[in-house]
């Protein structure tokens, strides 16, 4: 186990290194406007001087080396157009906690709703509840989030008697954003859990258990559910990342000061340092998420021994 974990961790680090190099190199292809607050008004000489000062005229490997040096000092450079001269880390420090809190809450919510829905659907396969759940899942899959989020906001706020905008101090204001963000994952969890449970319930050991006279509920929860839950666990860490990125809709509707829209905003403002930092941050979270997913699986399901076939996740 320890050997596997070490190996898995090392591989994540290597991947992260490659991703960083690739992203950094790609960023050099971004328009140089993004390194200046007021590119339009600068003369060629000023632009060249500015680029030299920021070390952007150095050869790529040198730049990369400097960048990694900066990383160890927790220095991602400063923002140029988004918030002039403010360190990138400071901007992210303000935004991250909000996103993490919302992300965790919404993942939790989607598990609280998604897992029972999926279980109930599997339990009543082909009957009314299953069909109702199916309609829900299909709706979430088919209708663009941008549309139903807005509907939820307009009607939900009236129903709850809260303002249209988010107010962190008012607990009721958390309901709609969290619920909106949780909807996609709820459908996702319900869909897959139902699938796994239906598959599991066709297995021979279930037939055997039934033949032995084990009660239907005991079979359902003690055996089927437990075995079906394991593959679902793998998705949870990576769905956290997708939730944060996907929160752009919710954040812009409710004025939530999170990370969701930040990438788009800084891209529009072509703030290269910010884009770079955020892409790397997301990539890091992505790598860690996949790793956590794998590790969770291993921990929860002793049957899985990944050590033997490392290299094929």
């Amino acid at each position: 186990m320890a050997k596997y974990l070490t190996k898995r961790l090392l591989r994540s680090v290597v991947t992260l290194f490659i991703v960083t190099c690739v992203v950094f190199t790609l960023m050099r292809a971004m328009p140089i406007e993004g390194y200046f607050q007021n590119y339009e008004k600068l003369t060629d000489a000023q632009i060249q001087a500015g680029l030299r000062e920021q070390g952007l005229l150095d050869p790529l490997p040198v730049q990369l080396w400097h960048f990694f040096q900066g990383l160890f000092r927790w220095d991602f450079g400063v923002s140029h157009t988004y918030r002039t001269n403010v360190p990138v880390t400071e901007i992210l420090r303000d935004k991250l906690p909000v996103s993490i809190r919302l992300g965790c809450l919404s993942i939790l919510t989607s598990m609280v709703f998604g897992i029972p829905i999926g279980t109930m659907m599997a339990r009543h396969k082909g009957r009314f509840f299953d069909k109702l759940g199916t309609v829900f899942i299909v709706f979430i899959q088919a209708v663009p989030a941008a549309v139903y989020f807005l509907l939820i906001q307009l009607y939900g706020t009236t129903a709850l008697g809260v303002g249209l905008l988010f107010d962190a101090a008012n607990p009721r204001c958390w309901i709609l954003p969290v619920l909106s963000m949780a909807l996609g994952n709820t459908a996702y969890y319900a869909m897959w859990l139902r699938r796994y449970m239906v598959d599991e319930s066709n297995k021979d050991y279930v037939t055997l258990a039934r033949a032995k006279g084990v009660s239907e509920n005991a079979i359902m929860f003690r055996h089927i559910f437990r075995n079906s839950f394991v593959p679902l666990v793998q998705y949870i860490p990576s769905s956290f990342l997708n939730t944060i990125i996907g929160s752009i809709y919710v954040e812009s509707l409710y004025s939530i000061p999170g990370m969701g829209g930040l990438l788009v905003t800084v891209i529009e403002k072509s703030d290269n340092n910010m884009v770079q930092a955020i892409v790397l941050l997301y990539a890091t979270v992505g790598v860690i998420g996949l790793m956590l997913g794998d590790i969770l699986m291993t921990v929860l399901d002793p049957r899985i021994t990944l050590a033997g076939k490392a290299g094929d996740r």
């Binding site: 807005l150 303002g163 905008l165 812009s252 004025s255």
Partner: peptide, 19 residues
């Protein structure tokens, strides 16, 4: 002044609600 990326959509509705 409150930031809202969708101010053009949400703004008029908020005025209507007196917010």
């Amino acid at each position: 002044r409150t930031y809202n990326a969708e101010a053009s959509t949400i703004g008029p509705e908020m005025v209507r609600r007196g917010e």
